[in-house]
Design a protein around this nucleic acid. Sequence first.
DNA 1: TTGTATGCGTTATCAC
DNA 2: GTGATAACGCATACAA
Lengths: 347, 347
Amino acid sequence: MQKLTLKKIARELDVSISTVSKSLKDSPEISEDTKQKIKAFADLYNYRPNTIALSLKNRKTKTLGVIIPEIVHHFFTTVVSGIEKVANEKGYTVIIGLSNESFEKEVTNMEKLANGSIDGFILSVSRETQLKKDYHHLLETIDHGMPVVLFDRTIPEIECDKVVVDDTEGARNAVKKLLDAGCKNIALITTEAHVNVGELRTAGYKDALIESGKGFSEDLILKLKDEFNEEGMEDNLNTIIELFLRNNPQVDGIFAVNEKYALTAMKASRSLGKDIPRDIKVIGFTDGVLSKYATPSLTTVSQHGVQLGEKAAELLIRRLEEDDYEPPYQTVVVETRLIERESTSIT
Amino acid sequence: MQKLTLKKIARELDVSISTVSKSLKDSPEISEDTKQKIKAFADLYNYRPNTIALSLKNRKTKTLGVIIPEIVHHFFTTVVSGIEKVANEKGYTVIIGLSNESFEKEVTNMEKLANGSIDGFILSVSRETQLKKDYHHLLETIDHGMPVVLFDRTIPEIECDKVVVDDTEGARNAVKKLLDAGCKNIALITTEAHVNVGELRTAGYKDALIESGKGFSEDLILKLKDEFNEEGMEDNLNTIIELFLRNNPQVDGIFAVNEKYALTAMKASRSLGKDIPRDIKVIGFTDGVLSKYATPSLTTVSQHGVQLGEKAAELLIRRLEEDDYEPPYQTVVVETRLIERESTSIT
DNA sequence: TTGTATGCGTTATCAC
DNA sequence: GTGATAACGCATACAA
């Protein structure tokens, strides 16, 4: 039994297609009688209008395109679930594209979706895109009048709506917490400079230290190359962090820009015979699930991914439904919150 | 600058729409000259055919609908990434719908996508669907000629392609491992009966014990209600597992059907003063990330989600591209693998 | 009150 | 070699 269409109903009931269409929309033009008959039939056979045809006709799809660098990643799934929630509430569908941190995949994915499949984008750029600084695909889609909302890993040069975490502020608070807990030599474990959020968090780290009057030392900042984020590099990551800590035995506090770095730092500290939190206190910037279950559990700067996703979807949908899609663009900042756990408790 | 269409190109170059269409497909009907001119123009302005129009015309969308119960869940994201990989390779797009374990959301999501947006479904049913045993939405879509591939949480009564993990076998191996490691009283922590995979893993647990000649006791099987899977129920979960272990002090091995149960069991054991793995050895059925980072790290039955997703996508795409979409349906079983870590090491 | 015609963007068939 | 037309499924302005 194939899908029912207006045409088939019309043929079956021996009326015109427009009569069927109008009846199903309960148009006052049509007599109650015919409407009843048609509705009953449509109901019985469970008629549903074809979404694709509607999209073509209305020139809008009521679907949002979401492009993320990775899906096996707690933060991003968290954001997606926020997007999905708001989108569904407002009658939108969500299409997900993965860039897998590749510039090329990001571009092709966007191009594919941009050709009619979606009404607007929500995306977080891939690491490679940040590195190459090639944003033509973003500029072009915006130029074509398709709204784009960037989140988390955003790009200052691009004018569009954005939703970000208060990376700098969150990092500053984390470091302040370490200072308050009595740490004298706080190390930072971060990513290479081209990752936007890494930069911002680094700035927050420096800010807090400067404000405290101690200042910071580049020696205590460990910048890790992208390759350490890849699958199977765990041991190397561990080795390098351990070496860093061995060379800087004065370190008694660590702020890491993500969960993996934080946990690995805890592990490395332990293998150097340091107790956490007694000898070294640790805070990670993350929403991840590992933190809660770690031993000791890890104090984190929570990113509120769901909320971020919700905001992004709201922003995009508002753009789509505003009659005149025009700037000014806005940047919404989602606040972080320090979740204190065992790794910073005062002993 | 709005999106380019055939019509606009035609108007611009003062030729007919069909000439443009044919030129861009490099039809031999058209003179080289015109083709060159048109192609150059299209290239310059980066023409891409509208996907929606193509879908309507071809009556296929080259899009797969994926419905999962949850996205903030490592196993499911893992499956999605496998699906996405294969789909992209074969030129398909992926739309993700979330049921959030709700029957109603599963139904509405499916209905929405089924009306032209996608060519076929890959899905894992929600917990509520399993509970209600109401499968009309699945039966109807299959009846409408739309292929469906079920994965992980499948339904025996439904005839369609399926991809499953060898739950029973995986569980059996895990329990065997515990037996081999010297455990005499192995407990099972599982879900309520209506969850399909929980049942299968329970069967494997019983099998292994029966095969070993020891048999099993219902007293050592802890069945946890769904509510313990919800957010914020961690403490209650911990309490109930701790109580269970306190009442069964002879337990020296635990097999848990998921990661959360396994980790909570480890935690509860510790608070009872039992050392892991010395006093109690633990294995969890999971692909999760927590296991590797837990202290002690958790031995797991790995589910190979990526592979499962790949298989599901391959199966679906084959169905879609086979000329005559006909049974027989197949069920692909993805093997599990025991990943041994500290929680079962012999002391 | 009902039906006809048109268009959304594309391709395929057929006519010129 | 090029163009007009119909069709995919739907909605709607306009006729009847």
